[in-house]
Structures are given as structure tokens and as C-alpha cells.
Write a protein that binds this DNA or RNA. Sequence first.
DNA 1: AAATTTACTTTTATGATGCAAGTATATTAT
DNA 2: ATAATATACTTGCATCATAAAAGTAAATTT
Lengths: 150, 150
Amino acid sequence: MKRLDVKSHCPINYALECFGDPWSLLIVRDIVYFGKKTYGEFLASEERIATNVLANRLADLEKKGIIKKCPCDTDKRKDIYMLTERGLDLIPLLSEMALWGAKHDVDTDAPKEWVETLSRDKEHILPLVRTTVEKGGAVFMGPNSVVSKL
Amino acid sequence: MKRLDVKSHCPINYALECFGDPWSLLIVRDIVYFGKKTYGEFLASEERIATNVLANRLADLEKKGIIKKCPCDTDKRKDIYMLTERGLDLIPLLSEMALWGAKHDVDTDAPKEWVETLSRDKEHILPLVRTTVEKGGAVFMGPNSVVSKL
DNA sequence: AAATTTACTTTTATGATGCAAGTATATTAT
DNA sequence: ATAATATACTTGCATCATAAAAGTAAATTT
């Protein structure tokens, strides 16, 4: 948890120092693709992150300016986590990662149609994903999902 | 070092399980951007990877099919590490990571001109990077560097 | 033949993660 | 109003990964 020393200012190393651990990008994925917003929703994700690790990662991501936390209006026990501008800027990176994984994992769960649509027309799709997520929507889930607009 | 259990077949998680540690992508970066090819060259990189960790990461990346190792013709003590097809397919992801880092690190070392060129014309640059690296060249170093062709 | 280079391995210390359990506050049910 | 439940955490402990330092074996240079 102590990542105070900066190893270099290579942009790739900088990015890795911000989110190059096994969990951070899965949290961002949960927001972008599945519209998750609360601690409990992140905790319930398929990869079974440990609760203390989730708390650490959320705090780190907030400190790094990738997510922000707001109290929930309707339930005061909950906080709502959303992407900042820096976080939204991760969408193209996340997409390339998803395309690589979908191409190279023979057992991938990635929906074939989405992969084809995305790789065919990034210029059009990525801004659509961004504006959707900005408004609290997601790629696959919810009434305003990106896939429902295609 | 024991990453035998697959947490999920989400393409993003798959990618993270292949190279989602703090070092693997720095090795790929050294190949793509700086034309590094041998153990000693990777060991000498700015971020100062520990020698045992480098040995582990090289072995893992080879096992995952991202790099391949060939004996060096001119010096039989050395091995030459190169990207496989799977490894070459990481170039777009690495580029997005570099663009994110260059944009969000106020102290970035990324060359401004390269960042602008890349973000303006990915369609043209990325295939050029790929064919260059395939032939043993790199983005910034060597007589056949990508930047020397622009 | 001796010194150096290269690509490692081994050992020990530290730090991060995984798992199980506990806590504080807010909400819902009775 | 009280009890039960939900939510977002924290704490303690075992295990795993990384960092640092040193050592090793084969190939090459002097």
C-alpha cells in the first residue's frame, strides 16, 4: 500500500503506478461495463475481491483522482462511486485490454457482437461509451446501456 | 508466482492475469520502445527491477506466450527475447496506456511530438510500429526506429 | 590461465493479499 | 420503540510476492 516513491516518469510506468495492480482496473471495468456504483456491488463481482483489498483500492483510486465518492441520497449508509475525468480517460485503454483478452482467450466470456462492433468502429463507439458512463450509465447494464443504443 | 487458478473469463480479467502485475508491461515497453532484447538490458532499465523478479517475469511471459527466447548467434552466453504474435498485439494497449500517462502526469518524460503524432494518427502509426518491432526494430532506438521514419 | 560478462538462483526481510471475523451506522420490520 | 438486517468498512493472521544482497555456472575476453 506504500507507493509514494515514483520509479520513473515514463508514461507507461506512471500509468502502471496509478492502476497497475491486479484489482484497480476490475473496479473501473465494473463501473464502465456493468454500472456498479457501491461497495457492496464491487464486493459481489465475479473475481471475489477481499473486502480489505477493496477498501484499499477504492481509497487509492480516489487519492489518485480516478474515482470520486459521493454520499447516496436515498440510502445514507451507501456511498456512490463514479469515475472522474481521469477515470473516464481510461475507457480507450480498457477497450484495448478487452479486445486483447477477447482475442486471445479461447474461453472468453466477451460477447462476440460487442467485440466486433467495438473493433470495427472505435471512433464512434468510444465517445458513446464515455458520455453514457458520464451520465451514470454503463455498456451492458441499465435502461440507457450502450448496447441498447446500437 | 502461482497464478494457475483463473478467476474469470472476463476478457479484461484474462488480460490482467496475463500481464497485470507491476513489471510485465515494462518489459514489453522496453522491447517495443527501446529495442531491448537481453536479460542485462532489461535489468538496466530505469525502474530497477530486481534480478530475481526479472527472471520470474521473463519465464512467466514466455509461458503465457507473450515473448519467446532464442539463443544469441554472436554471443552464446546471451539469449534474445522477442515478442510473439500475442505480444505484438499488445502494442495498441501499450499506446493507450502511454497516452493516458502522458496526458495525466504533469512531469511526464514522454516526447510531446511523439504523443501528438500517435494520438493524431493511430491508424497509420500502430501498423508501422508493429512491422518495425516484428523485424527487431523499436519506436525510439536503432537505425530503423519508427521516429526516424516520420 | 585469470578476469569479466551474462544469465541466472538462493536467501532473508519486508510488504501486499486472502480469508475469517468483528464493528459502527443506517434502514426496515414488528 | 425495539429487534433484525444491510452496508461499509476495520482488524488479525497466514500466505504469497517482491526487494535487496549475495552467490553460481557457463561463455567470452584479455
